[in-house]
């Protein structure tokens, strides 16, 4: 336990990098994912095909492969991005199809009758979507989105593992190598920091989902 307390500044530094990766990666994924989801329901066939192919490919590629591409292959191709930025890009790209799926399943969860009723009352596309469909889709989208963010939190460790970024996992590995006699304490300290993000988010997701499922 002493090791953890002695190295608390180092832990907090790693934790802040993890949170940074989570925030920027999550925001990027949200933007990309919304774009992909919009492309998948667009009336233009080519856009639909592109979005589907993108989703299939990224979803079936391991995150490690994506991170390695950004951290090791891109520099060979001549990019000069710092590793932290490369890691953020990798996380955003990898997470975007999951966000798109969460959004799409939320919108698909609204019964067709709702939109039909709105249309039959004479509401146009804009009013139907903004007043009828999206408010109902929203509550079904938030719990899955929180779940995607939990997965993203855990996935930031891969960036530390591959990409020479010293976030929480990287800090843990360095400390574990330096303090061979206190490996258990060091790694449990790291786990604690991950858990204070993931467990509350998980409880929130379950609570919201429970509330909204019962309402339905």
């Amino acid at each position: 336990m002493d090791v953890v307390i002695a190295n608390l500044p180092l832990y907090l530094e790693g934790f802040s990098v993890t949170l940074l990766l989570l925030a920027v990666g999550g925001l990027g994924a949200l933007v990309l994912g919304t774009l992909i989801a919009a492309m998948r329901i667009s009336p233009i066939a080519t856009l639909r095909v592109i979005a589907t192919v993108y989703t299939e490919i990224i979803r079936n590629t391991p995150l490690t492969l994506v991170v390695i591409f950004c951290a090791i292959i891109l520099p060979i191709l001549g990019s000069e991005l710092p590793y932290l930025i490369a890691g953020m890009i990798a996380l955003a790209v990898y997470t975007s199809p999951f966000i798109a799926e969460a959004l799409r399943s939320g919108i698909n969860g609204v019964p067709v009758g709702q939109a039909e009723a709105a249309r039959s009352l004479g509401l146009g596309f804009g009013l139907t979507v903004s007043l009828i469909v999206l408010p109902q889709a929203f509550r079904m989208t938030i719990p899955p989105l929180i779940n995607v963010l939990i997965a993203l939190t855990k996935n930031t460790s891969v960036v530390g593992g591959v990409g020479f970024v010293s976030e929480l996992f990287g800090v843990g590995r360095t400390l574990a190598n330096a303090n061979g006699d206190a490996v258990i304490a060091v790694l449990i300290g790291v786990a604690f920091f991950y858990l204070i993000v993931t467990v509350p988010l998980g409880l929130l997701a379950t609570k919201l989902e429970r509330k909204w499922v019962v309402q339905r």
């Binding site: 996935n155 460790s157 996992f169 590995r173 790694l187 786990a191 991950y194 858990l195 467990v199 998980g202």
Partner: peptide, 19 residues
């Protein structure tokens, strides 16, 4: 279960490897 679900797999691998 909550404990194991909230932790990165990678961390668990490292833990088992080292400990």
């Amino acid at each position: 279960i909550e404990f194991f679900r909230g932790m990165p797999v990678l961390l668990m691998m490292l833990f088992i490897l080292l400990v």
